[in-house]
Amino acid sequence: MIRLENISWHAGAFRLENVSFEIPTGRYAVLMGRTGCGKTTLLEIICGLRQPASGAVKIDSRDVTGEPPGVRGIGYVPQDGAMFPTMTVREQIGFALRLRRRPIAEIEQRVGELAEHLGVTSLLHRLPHDLSGGERQRVALGRALAAKPSVLLLDEPLSALDEDLRDDLASLLKRIQRELGITALHITHSAREAAQLADLLFRLDDGKVREAS
């Protein structure tokens, strides 16, 4: 479950005021809004990459507002995949588990499972500059899911892909979210994407979030 309670955030003239919404456990929520309306800022507040001026962020009923990003139990997939430039696909997917000092055998097993699930087994030895846009997003998804987070935050993960690939990856996202029972928040401009994926649809307008379905 993701719950935002009266979140406010200011930067110059730009402000989010008293933003509140809730995504129940296991649901796939889509957040839409104009460019520059604060969608990414909101996602970064949930991640812990930005601190709100006021309000609370709760994940699975736990108040994580003051906690650093790494202990919130989230998986984050940014717009362009944000690959680690010097790591192979295998190292990217195993990164979170290596940080947690999991045994090598466990890391290998988890990387293998995720790679198979996401269709990137043949790419495990490759560096990011040898991957296509779609492959990068699959790897970014695997990397975000490796430590078994309870929520998945996706910032326009399909925006840089062509239409066929977008549909494939949208199906993959939905399938994985269902299989893992994970709570997902997906930011997009695309009404088509929202229609494909959303259990819940939110719109961010003039600094306020309202439910659209």
């Binding site: 991640c47 998986g75 984050y76 717009q79 680690f84 947690r100 430590a147």
Partner: peptide, 10 residues
């Protein structure tokens, strides 16, 4: 961004 992702991963 990669640095931000690394922070969310722990």
């Amino acid at each position: 961004r990669p640095e931000n992702v690394a922070m969310t991963l722990g």
